[in-house]
Structures are given as structure tokens and as C-alpha cells.
């Protein structure tokens, strides 16, 4: 193998330092969440204990963490399913030019770059003024969609830009209906990307603050609950909560990577048998 240039070592060091910068703080609070009962927010560790995790499960000590976790979980799943369905439909629509498609595309980009506080305040006011009332499952749900849909649709663009229409034509030539082409050809081919869209949908909703803050009504989602805690909780219980929710997010990512890998393996194994009958 060719000898590595000196720039490799410089850049590799830079990359390592960046990783330290990226992960260092998270690892620090993970360690500090095992702080002894008399320990504080900073080092040194005064013994190790599960005290702060235990405190999370005592209802009164820290407000409504589990209630807000349940709400965030349900909301995340609602947003996830809606994001996948709407993104796929819009992705299919955008495959060909139609009157209004350019405007709609710029609206999607707009949804991404428009300051979150405008979305939050606007939806909050709208639901308040029309008497619908703000609630996490209605107004906050919509606010989250304005954030997750652009990501989902941009991914669908990336997918369909690389999509080979020959598969669909082959299916159509064999007499498949439009629905059959979609269900048996297109959908299986784009499935790994849809897992990605689902991950975006869930996680962006599960962690969202700025678009939720004025549009969630009286019941908090988990990030809002944590946001509230930052002003009045000054014990490592905050770190314990952070560690748990980070582990939760990381397991989701792990699950997604695993399922995509399995899908690709299965595809490689059961893939094409073209030509094997002849040879």
C-alpha cells in the first residue's frame, strides 16, 4: 500500500480531537450521573451511587418526568408515521413536474429555514384565537411536522434521484397495476431509506423544543420538562435524566443501523438470480 502522506496524520489528529469535543461532554455527564448522594454538579466524584437515577423514579422529587416522557413517546410515534406517509406520497408526486411543484418545493425549504419561534408563536396564536386550544397532540404535532417533513422530503428526493425506473417498467410490462408496482417494486426498494425517514421523524420530534414551546398547551413534552428543570434543578438528577434519554436515543439509532444492515444483507443474499438459470 502507498505510504500515507503527512497530511493524513495531521488530519487524523484533528479528527480525533473533534471526536473528543463531540463526545467528551456527554461522557462527562454520563460519569457524573453516578455521583454519590452528597456529590454535586462538577467533579470530584464523592463516591459512586445510583442515587440520582433512583430519584428520577420518585414522582414528587422532579416533577412530571414520566408523564412528559409518555407524551413525547406518543407524539414522536405520531409524527414518525405521519412523516413517513406524507414524505413518500410527496416524494412520488415530485418525481414528475406538475403545476405548482416549484412553489411547493420552496415552501418545503421555507419550512426548514423559517425561524422556529415564528412557527411556535404563530401556531400558538392560531390555536388560541380560533378557540381550538393548544395541545401537544394537535398544535405541537403540527409544529413538529413543519420541522420533520422537510427532512423526510429531502431524503425522498435523494432516493428518487437515484431510482432506476426500469424495475417499474418491467413490472408494468408484466401487467402489474399501479398499486402493485408501488407495493411490490417501489416500496421494497425504498424501504431502507424509509427507516431513515422514520428515525428523523421520531428523533426530531422527540428532542424538539423551539417549535413546541409556545404550541404545546399546558402539558409539557420531555424536552420542555428538561428545559424547565434547567432553571430550578441543581443536582446530578439532571445528568441522570440526560444519560437515560441519551441511551434511549442511541438504542434507537442502533436499532435502525441494525435493521438497515439486515435488509441490505437479505437483499444481497436473495437479490438477483438473473442469468443463473442459463449458466
Amino acid at each position: 500500500m502507498e505510504k500515507r502522506p503527512r497530511s493524513f496524520y495531521v488530519l487524523a489528529t484533528f479528527f480525533t480531537l473533534f471526536m473528543l469535543f463531540l463526545y467528551g461532554p456527554t461522557i462527562t455527564i454520563a460519569i457524573l450521573s453516578f455521583q454519590g448522594p452528597s456529590g454535586g454538579l462538577t467533579f470530584p466524584m464523592r463516591g459512586t451511587s445510583l442515587n440520582w437515577f433512583r430519584e428520577l423514579f420518585l414522582q414528587q422529587a422532579v416533577g412530571d418526568i414520566w408523564g412528559s416522557f409518555r407524551r413525547s413517546l406518543v407524539l414522536g410515534l405520531m409524527v414518525m408515521v405521519t412523516t413517513v406517509v406524507i414524505s413518500v406520497m410527496a416524494g412520488l408526486a415530485f418525481r414528475r413536474h406538475f403545476p405548482g411543484s416549484t412553489v411547493l418545493f420552496y415552501l418545503v425549504i421555507g419550512s426548514l429555514v423559517i425561524p422556529s419561534i415564528l412557527v411556535s408563536m404563530g401556531i400558538g396564536l392560531l390555536f388560541d384565537r380560533t378557540g381550538l386550544g393548544n395541545h401537544w397532540s394537535t398544535s405541537a404535532f403540527g409544529a413538529h411536522l413543519t420541522w420533520t417533513l422537510p427532512f423526510g422530503i429531502l431524503i425522498m428526493f435523494a432516493v428518487f434521484n437515484r431510482f432506476n425506473p426500469a424495475y417499474e417498467e418491467a413490472a408494468r410490462d408484466q401487467g402489474a397495476s399501479t398499486w402493485q408496482v408501488f407495493a411490490h417494486v417501489v416500496l421494497p426498494l425504498i424501504a431502507p431509506a424509509l427507516v431513515g425517514v422514520a428515525l428523523f421523524g421520531f428523533t426530531l420530534s422527540y428532542d424538539e423544543i423551539a417549535r413546541t414551546i409556545l404550541a404545546s398547551g399546558s402539558r409539557n413534552t420531555l424536552p420542555l420538562e428538561i428545559w424547565g428543570m434547567t432553571t430550578n434543578v441543581t443536582s446530578p438528577v439532571l445528568y441522570a435524566l440526560g444519560t437515560l434519554t441519551t441511551i434511549f436515543s442511541l438504542s434507537l439509532v442502533g436499532l435502525v443501523i441494525l435493521s438497515v444492515t439486515i435488509m441490505q444483507r437479505r437483499r444481497a443474499r436473495n437479490g438477483s438470480d438473473a442469468g443463473s438459470g442459463i449458466v
Binding site: I29, L41, L199, I226, T230, G242, T246, S249
Partner: peptide, 13 residues
């Protein structure tokens, strides 16, 4: 994929 607010909090220590 992890929470922004937690990542901010983690600078405190």
C-alpha cells in the same frame, strides 16, 4: 440523534 438540550447541559461540568 441525541437531545440538544442535554448536550448543552453537558458543558456545565
Amino acid at each position: 440523534w441525541t437531545s440538544n438540550i442535554i448536550r448543552m447541559i453537558s458543558w456545565i461540568p
